[in-house]
Design a binder for these strands. Structure first.
Lengths: 187, 187
DNA sequence: CGACACATGTAACACGTTACATGATTTG
DNA sequence: CAAATCATGTAACGTGTTACATGTGTCG
């Protein structure tokens, strides 16, 4: 629903046409999640179908301006007024991947973690480079910071996973050794 | 693609039928992102269509066991072997929301931030409570920790946003005051 | 003139979600 | 017996993605 509401928010600033919406969206989010133009038009069509926007006439140059309606404004308000909760959030692919990796025999979990951390570190560096070229735009810097915080926590989580794994392995070995000692049997 | 690969990973452990897959998936991810049973069957159908799994015969009790194929194993290996990168990640709804909130006039950004922080703190508490009931299962605890790290970084980001906003407001006022002082005009 | 930016749109498809329909088996 | 759990599936829908088709204007 981010795109839907994103476009609605932009139209709350002022009426715009599709192409412009893409430009503005990419700009305010720092081109972090580039938006396909086609998507804008399909989303606008759906917004219009739901009565949240109205399309104006073509303006002679082939441009069609969209305007937010009262219903759209209400929808937007409720978006801004309602926090994002767990059930809204998409499944975390990385978390699922690692959670399953540790349960599937024969998977080199440590390798998975290492590769992921390397990739995340690179992403973080790209981010830093990107931030250096920043023009001080507030919304843009907020988005970049959001990603920095996320990457940071991801790296720390990966470290945590590594030590959890190590501990689990140690405990397992410990248990095995204990059994061996108790039974005098070594498989 | 998390479900697709998730099911594939479970089938790598051993052949299973749909209902069982849901149970296992929910269990390993700690019921964090509960999986609709229907989804399992549609996903299995797609996996079979793509040759990543094969469906066995019904076993008399109306159960149909699915098995991973070599192609499926290859796909799974590449999933585990390839890190999750930025372009894989879904758009961050919260980041988009705040980025837009600061650009739309008349939005109470501070209020949005406060509500979100409150909600995230509650989510974090739920998480802590949930963790207390944990049975020490490794994959489950990894997922829960992942969420804890994320919530934590989200709260810190929200704090950061607040101070950025405050600073931006201060700078703006400062500039206005400077202009007033220079021109002697107060609008 | 050719390439590129501007501008709109459609079609096909993948994935995920919910709700519904159906039936067997178990258990209080 | 009624309710819950086990078990499979389908239909309809929403969103997002890519690729394609089309046309205008501008600038080197």
């Amino acid at each position: 629903m981010s795109i839907r509401h994103g476009l609605l928010a932009l139209l709350e600033r002022e009426p715009m046409y599709g192409y412009q919406l893409r430009t503005e969206f990419d700009q305010t989010t720092g081109s972090t999640w580039p938006l396909n133009v086609g998507q804008v038009y399909t989303t606008l069509a759906r917004l219009e179908r739901d009565g949240l926007v109205v399309a104006g006439e073509e303006d002679g140059e082939g441009r069609r301006r969209y305007e937010i309606t009262d219903a759209g404004r209400a929808d937007l308000d409720s978006w801004f007024g309602t926090p994002v909760i767990s059930s809204d959030r998409p499944r975390d692919e990385l978390a699922i991947k690692l959670a399953l990796a540790v349960t599937v025999p024969g998977v080199d979990v440590a390798g998975v973690i290492q590769k992921q951390r390397a990739a995340t570190i690179v992403a973080m560096q790209d981010l830093t480079r990107l931030k250096a070229t920043g023009d001080g735009d507030l919304s843009w810097s907020l988005v970049l910071e959001s990603m920095r915080f996320q990457y940071d926590s991801e790296i720390r989580w990966l470290d945590h996973c590594e030590s959890s794994l190590a501990r689990a392995a140690r405990d397992r070995d410990q248990a095995t050794a204990t059994i061996e000692a108790k039974t005098g049997v070594k498989r």
